[in-house]
């Protein structure tokens, strides 16, 4: 089963994302910040990482950099959840090795179609 790591400090967003993905037939691992996500990423082999940018402890940019440094996550798609005001963050995210982004707000259908786009 395709496993997705969903990272967001906002519980409601995380629940929504996780619920949507599970409904789409994916296995979901949830983390509430970058530090937790990194730990979970090491413990579980994930096929895709979906991360918020602004988070306490470790933000999405830093998380992406860290993940790309791990052998298992060199080529794994990493998608960032950003807002329209986050243009700089997009550039920063790309520099850190992010695959792409999903612009907030999104609805469950948009989320799934984007996910399917990178998982082929």
């Amino acid at each position: 089963m395709t496993r997705i790591l969903a990272v967001d400090d906002s519980a409601s967003m995380r629940q929504m994302v996780a619920f949507t993905l599970k409904g789409g037939g994916f296995d979901v691992v949830e983390a509430s910040d970058g530090v937790e996500a990194l730990e979970l990423a090491k413990e579980n082999d994930c096929d895709l990482v979906l991360t918020d940018v602004n988070m306490p402890n470790m933000d999405g940019i830093e998380l992406t950099k860290e993940l790309r440094g791990l052998a298992n996550y060199k080529f794994v798609p990493i998608l960032m959840l950003t807002t329209e005001s986050g243009m700089d963050k997009k550039t920063e995210g790309r520099a850190a090795g992010a695959t792409g982004w999903i612009v907030k707000p999104f609805n469950p259908d948009q989320l799934l179609s984007t996910i399917k786009k990178v998982l082929g």
């Binding site: 967003m13 929504m16 918020d52 602004n54 988070m55 306490p56 959840l81 907030k104």
Partner: peptide, 17 residues
């Protein structure tokens, strides 16, 4: 940063929902 993050989450959530 903490203030910003709080506002940011509220915005993200409210737009989504």
């Amino acid at each position: 940063n903490t203030i910003f993050r709080a506002a940011h989450s509220i915005k993200g959530g409210s737009a989504t929902f």
